[in-house]
């Protein structure tokens, strides 16, 4: 397993990234640019938590795929339903 120091580093990155997210909002960027940056930051944080705090990085890949399937299903629903409105 990895050291406490490593976990602390991850934690600091997460903390800073959350702060940056809000700063982006106040930076006065165009809406969809800000939207893109903020969502990418959220996704990056989620990946960090899943990979290191939940140890998916060191587990058999099947567990990652398992969660991925759920994610794809939810995305399919959201995207197709929203698209059908167009």
């Amino acid at each position: 397993m990895v050291s406490t120091k490593f976990y602390t580093a991850i934690y600091v990155v997460l903390f800073v990234s959350a702060t940056v997210q809000v700063l982006v909002e106040f930076a006065g960027l165009a809406y969809w640019t800000a939207f893109g940056i903020i969502m990418v930051l959220s996704a990056a944080k989620a990946v960090l938590v899943a990979a290191y705090f939940q140890h998916l990085r060191w587990e058999p890949r099947s567990l990652t795929y398992l969660v991925g399937i759920g994610l794809v299903a939810a995305l399919a629903l959201t995207v197709a339903a929203s698209y059908s409105l167009l």
């Binding site: 759920g70 939810a74 995305l75």
Partner: peptide, 8 residues
């Protein structure tokens, strides 16, 4: 994984 779909 099922909870992912619930929140999804």
């Amino acid at each position: 994984a099922s909870d992912v779909v619930l929140f999804g």
